[in-house]
């Protein structure tokens, strides 16, 4: 058996498989299908300072090898999370990480500060890359200055492991990655969804209520691998790779591109047990290639 454990900042993962925010609910939705303790970390649904209703239906469209979504950060707000959800998930025997979103740097920081108080949440993932809400997220994630501003505000109030989720909808993702590293992020995760659109040609209308949405699934994987490779060479902090991972071979690709851990998103919808299958598959791949530790293959591609 190879060694699968890996650290991201102070965060210790028993294996490098995490769930991508927004695709795994609060973990509990999957408890009938998979032993949650077998997953390296569960990143729960995006949480904002205040309640958000999200966008109107339809919020989803299936596209070749992927899907578009424009959920729009529907959630009941951080206080509801702390009082109602946290008690239900705090005893899950693995890392539970909260994805945090906001409309202003102060929003983000306040939301992060409240989650800082929760003993059993060892890290947050800052979403500066949601393409589906007008007043938040991606606006910060597409400029050096905006990204730095949010991370700085959060870093001042959040003392545990800080992961920043990056948008691929930029000219040079390494530029943003370096900016958030400079402000004290412990890790970056990438990629969030790619902005996309699909049209119903009979109705001559977009398939999504807000016209555009974020593309995920295997369709985006080569873009994600390329960006992980670029960012891993540009920063010293660990990179978490995601984008279209469906199986262990996909995950190995991300490790070789430079990812220290990976997240599985859309694949959970097709196979709710995929996280554990990927973990087992990584193990088998390492064993069959006589690799004793995952760290040996991280960044194997120059």
């Amino acid at each position: 058996m190879s060694t699968l454990n890996i650290n991201i900042g102070d965060l210790q993962l028993k294996n490098p498989v995490m769930t991508a925010s927004g695709t795994f609910g609060y973990g509990l939705e999957y408890a009938d299908f998979v032993n949650l303790a077998d997953i390296g970390a569960i990143i729960v649904k995006g949480t904002t300072l205040h309640h958000r209703e999200g966008n109107d239906y339809p919020r989803m469209a299936e596209t070749p090898s992927g899907m578009l979504n424009c959920v729009g950060l529907q959630n009941k707000g951080v206080d509801y999370f702390c009082n109602n959800i946290y008690p239900q998930i705090k005893d899950i025997d693995t890392n539970v990480i909260v994805n945090v979103s906001g409309s202003t740097p102060e929003d983000y920081a306040e939301c992060a500060a409240r989650i800082d108080q929760l003993d059993k949440i060892p890290a947050i993932e800052l979403n500066i890359s949601c393409p589906n809400v007008k007043d938040g997220g991606m606006a910060f994630g597409v400029t050096r200055k905006g990204a730095a501003q949010v991370v700085k505000a959060v870093r001042a109030k959040y003392h545990k492991t800080l992961i920043v989720k990056l948008s691929p909808n930029v000219t040079d993702i390494t530029d943003i990655a370096k900016a958030v590293e400079d402000e004290g992020a412990d890790s970056v995760s990438l990629i969030n969804t790619l902005m996309g659109m699909a049209i119903d040609i009979e109705r001559r209308k977009p398939l999504l209520s807000i016209k555009t949405g974020g593309l995920s699934g295997p369709a985006v994987k080569p873009v994600a691998v390329r960006m992980v490779w670029q960012v891993a060479r540009a920063v010293r902090i660990p990179v978490i790779g995601l984008g279209g991972i469906m199986n262990a071979n996909d995950a190995i690709e991300f490790f070789m591109a430079g990812a220290s851990a990976i997240q599985i998103g859309t694949a959970n919808f097709i196979d709710p047990t995929v996280t554990v299958k990927v973990r087992d598959g990584i193990n088998q791949w390492l064993d069959s290639h006589n690799v004793s530790s995952l760290t040996e293959i991280i960044g194997a591609v120059d």
Binding site: T23, E29, G54, P58, R59, M60, T266, F269
Partner: peptide, 13 residues
């Protein structure tokens, strides 16, 4: 229209 079917993705609202 739904994606996950188990209340995780919030698409079918």
């Amino acid at each position: 229209m739904m994606a996950c079917g188990i209340g995780a993705c919030l698409c079918c609202v």
